[in-house]
Design a protein around this nucleic acid. Structure first.
Lengths: 165, 165
DNA sequence: TATTGTTATACTCTATAACTATA
DNA sequence: TATAGTTATAGAGTATAACAATA
């Protein structure tokens, strides 16, 4: 256990609790909005990854999302049923299912980005713009010090209630 | 959808994503440490609630934690097996199981507070003390504006992956 | 008749492993 | 023999509802 700082000076709840409290709240209302689009958070992450580079295999994307192949099948099935994603054959290796966005998938992703921008506005409505920028700066420092990769959310993979994550 | 702000100025990831990213990370490593004590996060919340006011019924505490009675039975069983909590009869109403901490329960709760204080230090190691205080202030403003009750974490109750929370 | 706590049960979501087809 | 994707299956965790004891 670290010995930095004076325990008496640390008020609970402190920054760690507040970040968790507000952060979980942020995720909850964001997922609520995604659900209204018929999407799970992992659907959105998958769509975004495909949009960055189309044609990758299910296994490659599953590895990046830390999802086992059997789960990937289900999520890709669902997105294909929704008409947002396509499995295409790879001529070089017929085992591989190359994933591509449909036009509708691109539209939805656009909608998701608009909703996320609005989510940002709603969540920071208690702050001035200067304060919001300040908050982003401080959180960025924390994220960097914690070794969190930019844009990579640690809560994508499933976490059983009693897990460590 | 809100129309406040200029969408072009909102960079993604912004404050909302960062709060969720860092907040979930905070919760993950905190739960990891609790698990080393043999505790689930809900065990800890329950112990804390009992310590605030001993002798309350399972139903009262379950309502506060938004857990159904059947889940409360399981968690109280587990804490009783660990020797941290006691079910005592209520002479006025023999249906009620009054919950009390054991001495060992109080010790563990003390350990939990020490670990949480250390967790705070570790999580904010990228910040100066002034910055940490600033961050607490900004997050407090956000929490208030979002209507979050102080000290009440929104992630205590179970949330299925596809839920809105 | 209503309420507290317990037990029984069905459901959702998950990871593992067996399997098919390609390589 | 190894790899990409699929299907089958068993387990963990949950909420609902039936239940027993007490009010």
């Amino acid at each position: 256990m670290s010995e930095r700082g004076d325990p008496k000076k640390i008020v609970v709840p402190g920054a760690a609790f507040l970040m968790s409290q507000v952060g979980v709240h942020s995720g909850q209302i964001w997922r609520e909005r995604m659900k209204k689009l018929g999407l799970d958070s992992r659907h959105v992450v998958l769509l975004r990854l495909v949009s960055v580079e189309e044609g990758r295999s299910q296994l490659a994307l599953g590895t990046q999302m830390r999802l086992p192949p059997s789960r990937m099948v289900a999520f890709v099935d669902e997105l294909e049923d929704l008409g947002l994603l396509e499995r295409r054959p790879n001529p070089d290796d017929r085992r591989i299912r190359a994933l591509h966005l449909t036009d509708r998938g691109r539209e939805i992703l656009n909608t998701v980005m608009k909703i996320s921008a609005d989510h940002e506005t709603e969540l920071t409505k208690g702050l001035s713009e200067a304060e919001r920028v300040q908050l982003v700066g401080l959180l960025g420092k924390v994220a960097t010090a914690q070794g969190l990769a930019p844009g990579v959310h640690p809560g994508v993979a499933f976490q059983p209630p009693n897990s460590a994550g």
